[in-house]
Lab assay of single mutants.
Amino acid sequence: QVNIAPGSLDKALNQYAAHSGFTLSVDASLTRGKQSNGLHGDYDVESGLQQLLDGSGLQVKPLGNNSWTLEP
Protein backbone atom coordinates (compact mmCIF):
# COMPACT_ATOMS: atom_id res chain seq x y z
CA GLN A 1 0.00 0.00 0.00
CA VAL A 2 1.43 3.34 -1.11
CA ASN A 3 0.61 6.60 0.67
CA ILE A 4 2.38 9.61 -0.88
CA ALA A 5 1.04 13.09 -0.18
CA PRO A 6 0.52 15.65 -2.96
CA GLY A 7 3.43 18.01 -3.51
CA SER A 8 6.73 18.21 -5.36
CA LEU A 9 6.95 15.69 -8.20
CA ASP A 10 10.65 15.08 -7.43
CA LYS A 11 9.88 14.20 -3.82
CA ALA A 12 6.90 12.00 -4.74
CA LEU A 13 8.93 10.06 -7.32
CA ASN A 14 11.80 9.53 -4.88
CA GLN A 15 9.42 8.32 -2.16
CA TYR A 16 7.73 5.93 -4.58
CA ALA A 17 11.05 4.51 -5.82
CA ALA A 18 12.25 3.97 -2.24
CA HIS A 19 8.93 2.38 -1.22
CA SER A 20 8.65 0.11 -4.27
CA GLY A 21 12.31 -0.83 -4.66
CA PHE A 22 12.95 0.27 -8.25
CA THR A 23 15.58 2.54 -9.77
CA LEU A 24 14.48 5.80 -11.38
CA SER A 25 16.94 7.70 -13.59
CA VAL A 26 15.63 11.19 -14.31
CA ASP A 27 17.10 14.43 -15.63
CA ALA A 28 16.21 16.86 -12.84
CA SER A 29 15.33 19.57 -15.36
CA LEU A 30 12.33 17.48 -16.49
CA THR A 31 10.68 17.43 -13.06
CA ARG A 32 11.85 20.79 -11.66
CA GLY A 33 8.93 22.89 -10.44
CA LYS A 34 6.32 20.24 -11.28
CA GLN A 35 3.74 19.03 -8.79
CA SER A 36 2.15 15.64 -8.18
CA ASN A 37 -1.31 14.79 -6.88
CA GLY A 38 0.25 12.06 -4.74
CA LEU A 39 -0.50 8.36 -4.74
CA HIS A 40 -2.68 6.25 -2.45
CA GLY A 41 -3.41 2.54 -2.80
CA ASP A 42 -1.88 -0.53 -4.43
CA TYR A 43 -0.15 -0.14 -7.80
CA ASP A 44 2.33 -1.98 -9.95
CA VAL A 45 5.42 0.16 -10.62
CA GLU A 46 4.37 1.45 -14.05
CA SER A 47 0.79 2.27 -13.04
CA GLY A 48 1.99 4.11 -9.95
CA LEU A 49 4.50 6.13 -11.96
CA GLN A 50 1.83 7.04 -14.52
CA GLN A 51 -0.48 8.18 -11.73
CA LEU A 52 2.25 10.32 -10.12
CA LEU A 53 3.06 11.87 -13.52
CA ASP A 54 -0.57 12.66 -14.36
CA GLY A 55 -0.75 16.22 -15.70
CA SER A 56 3.06 16.66 -15.77
CA GLY A 57 3.45 16.14 -19.52
CA LEU A 58 6.01 13.40 -18.82
CA GLN A 59 5.92 9.73 -19.80
CA VAL A 60 7.44 6.72 -18.06
CA LYS A 61 9.82 4.49 -20.03
CA PRO A 62 11.11 1.09 -18.83
CA LEU A 63 14.88 0.52 -19.05
CA GLY A 64 14.82 -3.12 -17.90
CA ASN A 65 16.17 -4.65 -14.68
CA ASN A 66 13.54 -2.83 -12.58
CA SER A 67 14.84 0.55 -13.80
CA TRP A 68 12.76 3.34 -15.27
CA THR A 69 13.26 6.78 -16.77
CA LEU A 70 11.04 9.71 -17.72
CA GLU A 71 10.80 11.51 -21.03
CA PRO A 72 8.76 14.45 -22.33
Rank of each mutant, 00 (worst) to 15 (best):
G21Y: 06
A18F: 11
S36G: 02
G7D: 06
L63Q: 07
K34V: 07
S36K: 00
G64K: 04
N37L: 12
D10W: 15
E46V: 13
S56G: 01
G38H: 03
G33K: 05
E71M: 11
Q15H: 08
T23P: 02
G33D: 10
L49A: 02
S20T: 10
L70K: 00
T31R: 00
A28W: 14
Q1S: 13
I4S: 00
N14W: 14
Q50T: 12
D54T: 13
D27G: 05
V26C: 11
A12L: 09
R32K: 12
K34H: 08
D54N: 12
P62T: 09
D27Y: 06
S8R: 10
R32V: 12
N65A: 10
T23Y: 10
G64V: 03
Q51A: 14
S56T: 15
N3C: 15
T23G: 06
S47W: 07
L24R: 01
E46R: 12
Y16K: 00
Y16Q: 00
T31G: 03
H19G: 07
W68M: 02
S36R: 02
G33T: 04
G57R: 05
E71I: 14
G48A: 08
S8A: 12
T69A: 12
N3W: 13
Q1N: 12
Q15N: 07
E71V: 15
S56N: 04
G41M: 03
L70D: 00
V2E: 03
L39C: 05
A12D: 02
I4Q: 02
S20M: 15
P72A: 12
F22C: 09
L63G: 07
D54K: 15
P6W: 05
Q50V: 12
R32D: 10
S56I: 07
D44H: 06
K34I: 10
G41W: 04
S36D: 01
A28G: 09
L58S: 01
V45Q: 06
T31M: 09
L9H: 02
P62R: 15
Q15V: 07
S47T: 12
R32W: 13
L52R: 00
E71A: 09
L39P: 00
S56Q: 06
L9K: 01
D54V: 15
Q1I: 14
S8I: 06
S25W: 14
S29C: 15
P72C: 13
L52H: 00
G38C: 06
A5T: 07
G38S: 01
G64H: 04
N3G: 03
A12I: 09
L39R: 01
A12C: 15
Q35F: 15
N14M: 15
V26D: 05
G55F: 05
A28Q: 10
G21W: 06
A28E: 12
L63W: 06
A28D: 10
G64N: 06
A17F: 05
